[in-house]
Design a protein around this nucleic acid. Structure first.
Lengths: 355, 355
DNA sequence: TGATAAAAGTGCTATATAGCAATATAGGTT
DNA sequence: AACCTATATTGCTATATAGCACTTTTATCA
């Protein structure tokens, strides 16, 4: 028993350690018994136990004893939920798509008197402490962060968006990316385009794979053979858009249209192609995905697939609310349709125009 | 002294009542003194006071005494702070500038184990309940929401950004908008422009007024007489940018450059001018303010004033943390410099080019 | 074997006492 | 007025003891 630690703190630590080691799992020895075992006064034991009760580690039932508090059971509801983005998304919540989702979730939450925290996992300690304060979490999910998703689920109810979690008991709200990109290919084909480039998103996720698969299915549906040289492997960033355009510029025969797996890559492609003297859409048509706010504000205004932001937010919040209230969630996995918004970044091919 | 109430509860109630009646406003008598006055044991007094400390009613300073906890500090700290935007900002947290600020604040807060809630005031009840959960608030301030700012201040510590509050005891972190726009005018003049249009922000705030004043001062500094026909009264929105460009198009002689009070209006102006066959920057140069992310991604990349997002967030968080911890805030009102970022939306006037 | 009484266990309230480290106050000196 | 010393104040840690109301366990008796 160290001289520098008060005895009552020593007893607190002793109890906490015994709980951690599963030596104490439910009922503690009586206060007088414990005092005798540890060789301290009864009042010292009482002081330690009172502190641990205040901290929520233990609870007392008069005349019956003192018990270990189960992990999740006794926490008070805070009516605060969290929106989680992992820290590999460098721009974090300032990313145009995620800030739209976050804004929409906050509106639905506020109507039900829930406050909304935004948090990430750059600081592990802060991440854990924030989780402890929440009734539940809506998380943007990627396969690469499955461990984090599991950790969240072990602490509070969780609903995922964008990609399903590997653990299929976690409800998910995603976009029907496949049919959205089939739609884009159909529209581009309706303008007469046959040589259609594609900038993929990250293929480590269902989002990336589904958008690419939709492109491929759209080609075959329009009797266009798949040509792998018309595919640039991107990663959703503006910089990838620039590099993708460079790649297509390097081809002997450029595509007459490019479908991008998101708007940021479309912006990068427009920048590089314009710099190289190409006119959008007269020389080459561009389609994006997400319909971030500036998509309608740039020159030319971008034709893009509009993600159903409000629907995603509403379904995610409602599913989470049910989990928090221990109610059954009717539709565990929801795939929402996305709509193509036609603006000025696409035009008919020169051949169709000449005819 | 009632038989049915334990003595320590009686002492707790006695202290709380004395606080309520203002008989105790700051320092309590010593524990031994109190025990004597109330005719109970010293240990009983200690037990009562410890409970009131746990409840946040009192706080103790070893060797100095026990004190009444001021009203605001009554609650247990949640280590959760809020970022407030009033609901008249339709795009809410998805606005490019505000989401950057919010993202930056979250990073500083997480490092200090504070969680960050985003909230608005569309739902009054939710607004009040959220306030109750927070240790403090960083609020984007406008003169039109002074009543809301006061309400926040009456509940928790508050720091404002963007505009100072009318209540000068509230710390503020703002941008030096005046010198930022002087800078823009200087730069435009250095390119040979003498006919310089200006799209104001909202003039109901210091931000709006300072940016306009900086434009005017910049003109006089460069010996250019102020011409009120070269001023369009805007409101920071993309739509105002379109209308502003329409206004300048309607003039007999258009300006050769336009300085916009923010980037969204610059986007609108570029859109309308391009539609009307003008080339940016060859026919007319454009300057924005804020340096939102897409400013660098559009064609042409926008020359704009970069708001010191991280500095604002850092100072705001640090000031708020001090308020929460009852420490003095050294610099109550901070005006941070903003830097002009030169990209592709400006060029020399045709006259300078010909020479 | 079942019922009842006694004993033991349990957290709770209350008091008394001693001594520690740090700070504040009072008094005296230069 | 500034400095030093002694004393008082302050919350803190720790121990000991007594007895209460209630519940659980054990022992005893029919």
């Amino acid at each position: 028993m160290s001289e520098s630690v008060p005895k009552y703190v020593f007893v607190e630590n002793y109890i906490k350690e015994a709980i951690r080691k599963k030596q104490l799992v439910d009922k503690l020895p009586g206060e007088r018994v414990l005092a005798q075992q540890l060789g301290v006064s009864y009042m010292t034991v009482r002081k330690s136990i009172d502190n641990l009760v205040n901290d929520g580690v233990l609870y007392k039932v008069p005349t019956q004893g003192t018990f270990v508090n189960p992990d999740k059971a006794n926490r008070k509801k805070t009516r605060t939920i969290g929106y989680f983005l992992d820290s590999s998304i460098v721009a974090g919540i300032s990313s145009p798509y995620y800030s739209l989702i976050f804004n929409a979730i906050e509106k639905y939450a506020a109507k039900e008197n829930y406050s909304l925290v935004y948090f990430s996992d750059a600081d592990k300690e802060s991440f854990k402490k924030t989780l402890q304060k929440l009734d539940g979490v809506i998380a943007t999910c990627f396969p690469r962060i499955e461990i984090t998703i599991l950790e969240i689920k072990q602490t509070v109810p969780v609903v995922v968006i964008d990609n399903s979690a590997a653990d299929k008991t976690i409800p998910s709200i995603i976009i029907d990316n496949f049919n959205a990109d089939v739609q884009s290919v159909d529209y581009i084909c309706s303008l007469g385009h046959r040589r259609i480039g594609f900038m993929t998103g990250l293929e480590d996720s269902d989002v990336g794979k589904s958008r690419f698969a939709g492109y491929q299915y759209g080609l075959s549906k329009n009797a266009i053979p798949f040509d792998s040289t018309l595919v640039y492997r991107g990663n959703y960033s503006y910089e990838a858009g620039i590099e993708g355009a460079e790649y297509f510029l390097s081809l002997e025969t450029m595509p007459t249209a490019i479908i991008c797996a998101n708007d940021s890559m479309a912006l990068g492609a427009i920048q590089k192609l314009t710099q190289n003297g190409f006119d959008i859409p007269n020389d080459i048509s561009i389609v994006g995905f997400d319909d971030i706010e500036v998509a309608s504000q740039i020159v030319p205004a971008l034709t893009t697939v509009a993600a159903p932001i409000n629907d995603i937010a509403q379904h995610a919040f409602n599913s989470l609310k049910k989990l928090i209230n221990n109610e059954p969630v009717e539709h565990q996995h929801i795939a929402l349709p996305a709509r193509l918004v036609i603006r000025q970044s696409c035009t008919k091919t020169q051949e169709v125009k000449a005819a």
